[in-house]
């Protein structure tokens, strides 16, 4: 008895479609990835349950690194750069630092300001890649008598007067509380009572009150 012939089918599958999908996804991920700009001042931010994305416009950022050094930076767009220019110019005028226009421009281009005011001239001469947490001592903010951040914040408040200012504090996990308190003092002295702190997001613990509120639907945090 002859067996009926079963046609043998190849087990090979057409990979073209799968390949298309793989590379479509790949190009999507490559295009949507925004690489973190390398930070001259490395800061490990703490975690919080805050859900609001950190602002990127009209930003003045105070960075507090692990040694308690304070750095000031502004947003990247043109209006923020212009305001930074105005700030430096006003400090230059009030403190009589004698910075030339070219030096002010160099400081505006710098990623952050992190020297006592008397050394601004020197920082203006540095190349961008030479500016980092090791070479710059930070803005003096140790105590109330020698707190140049107060003057900087006054310049910031003046420049952003009438407009919207997002004051952002980016602090390091291991920065000591007194350093944080000195920054707060500088904010308070200039009546900047609202500010935001950069944190890494983390999930809300289950069963907590905030968790219940979010579950129930009206969980817009402010």
């Amino acid at each position: 008895m002859a067996r009926p012939k079963i046609p043998r089918k190849s087990t090979a599958v057409d990979m073209t479609a799968m390949c298309d999908v793989a590379f479509l996804l790949l190009s999507f991920f490559i295009l949507t990835t925004k690489f973190k700009p390398s930070e001259a001042v490395p800061v490990q931010t703490p975690n919080s349950v805050a859900a609001k994305i950190a602002p990127e416009k009209d930003v003045v950022m105070i960075t507090l690194n692990k040694d308690g050094h304070v750095f000031l930076s502004s947003g990247d767009n043109t209006s923020d750069k212009q305001k930074k220019h105005d700030m430096i110019a006003s400090i230059n005028g009030s403190r009589g630092l004698g910075l030339t226009e070219a030096e002010i421009q160099a400081l505006v281009k710098a990623p952050f300001l992190g020297v006592p005011m008397t050394q601004l001239k020197q920082q203006a001469r540095l190349q961008t890649d030479q500016m980092n947490a090791q070479t710059l001592p930070g803005i003096p903010c140790q105590d109330t008598t020698n707190n140049e951040l107060i003057d900087w914040m006054r310049a910031v408040a003046d420049v952003y007067q009438g407009g919207h200012l997002n004051l952002v504090l980016k602090g390091d996990n291991v920065a000591k509380y007194p350093a944080f308190k000195n920054v707060l003092t500088a904010f308070k002295k200039n009546r900047q009572f609202k500010f935001q702190m950069v944190t890494n997001p983390e999930s809300v613990p289950q069963g907590s009150d905030l968790w219940k509120k979010n579950i129930s639907g009206h969980g817009s945090e402010d």
Binding site: A22, K52, F195, V198
Partner: peptide, 26 residues
């Protein structure tokens, strides 16, 4: 292709930094 996808997924920090608001008293 999939190897690269996995690489990009793992190296991408999907979470943007968030901001915590604090209002100081006068």
């Amino acid at each position: 292709g999939f190897l690269l996808i996995t690489f990009f997924i793992f190296t991408t920090t999907m979470s943007q930094p968030t901001a915590m608001k604090l209002n100081l008293p006068d």
